[in-house]
């Protein structure tokens, strides 16, 4: 496989993973959670490094995943038990963890050789260089396998829990009254989001994950009335933005992750404008005044 194809494929996989989980987050009005998780994993990565002493990706991933789950639980606790509004709970918890991360970096500068920059922008253009090897045989790009694994996890979760997920995403009170375990559904969904974010983040950088968590599902929400349609359109938009973003970055020589999120944003704006013009056009044609 050529490098370009791998990059596009990884971008697409990340977009699908984040798109599907993000769709539920958008419906639950928790869109900022991706942003929160991507910042909150910083101390996890640094603590993992300090404990293990390795620059091995596995430990980083472990620390990040732990912190991702931790911050979701923290947000949930602040919101449900602490009676703080959702947005304030999100803002409070991730900024704190990020601050702790920065403090740890400055306190152990001599031991920790981590650049905060590289944590924030895992670079998608480097994806083809990290590969898995088993018994000396290269079996393919690491990021590809990681994200495929997450995709399987997401599909399994959504497939098995579709009904409860569907009900509790639209109406928690109703879900509770018909016996959906909303708390465990919510928590497992949030944990899934944090795993998706952490895995994707590690390969392609934070900004792209956060963008793909929100923009494609929100765009799909504009043009669909049903959840399966929304998920399908999200997947399609994910494909468009990963391909389009790659070629945009190629042509202007800019960041691939930045361009992919830029393309996704442009598509969102385009859909709103398109809908607006279509509505105006349709109203003109079928206006009751003309009848």
């Amino acid at each position: 496989m050529s490098d370009a194809l791998i990059i596009i494929l990884v971008g697409f996989l990340v977009a699908v993973n984040s798109g599907i989980t993000g769709a539920f987050m958008v419906l639950r009005k928790l869109s900022m959670i991706g942003d929160a998780i991507s910042h909150a994993v910083l101390p996890g990565i640094i603590i993992a490094y300090m404990i293990s002493g390795h620059r091995e990706n596995f430990f980083f991933l472990l620390g990040a995943a732990f912190m991702g789950v931790f911050v979701t639980l923290m947000i949930d606790w602040f919101n449900k038990k602490g009676k703080l509004p959702t947005d304030a709970s999100i803002g409070l918890s991730f900024t704190f963890l990020f601050a702790v991360g920065i403090i740890l970096i400055s306190a152990f500068t001599d031991q920790v050789d981590i650049d905060a920059d590289c944590v924030l922008y895992g670079e998608i253009s480097l994806v083809p260089f990290h590969t898995y090897t088993i018994f000396g045989v290269e079996i393919g790009t690491k990021a590809l396998w990681d994200n495929l694994f997450i995709l399987g996890l997401i599909l399994a979760f959504v497939g098995f829990m579709y009904r409860p997920l569907f009900i509790s995403s639209f109406n928690e009170e109703y879900g509770q009254s018909v016996g959906v375990p909303i708390r465990s559904i919510r928590l497992s969904l949030m944990i899934l989001v944090s795993l998706t974010t952490v895995f994707a983040f590690e390969s392609v950088g934070a900004i792209l994950v956060v963008a793909f968590l929100v923009i494609p599902p929100a765009t799909a929400l504009l043009v669909s009335q049903r959840l399966p349609h929304m998920l399908a359109i999200t997947t399609m938009l994910a494909l468009f933005s990963s391909v389009g973003g790659f070629f945009l970055a190629d042509s202007i020589d800019g960041s691939i992750a930045g361009s992919m999120s830029f393309v996704a944003g442009i598509m969102f704006v385009g859909v709103i404008l398109g809908k607006k013009f279509y509505a105006r056009f349709a109203r003109k044609r079928f206006s009751p005044h003309q009848l």
Binding site: S31, D35, A211
Partner: peptide, 9 residues
């Protein structure tokens, strides 16, 4: 919330 996240990214 989604509008803010979209603008941010």
């Amino acid at each position: 919330d989604a509008a803010m996240a979209i603008a941010l990214t």
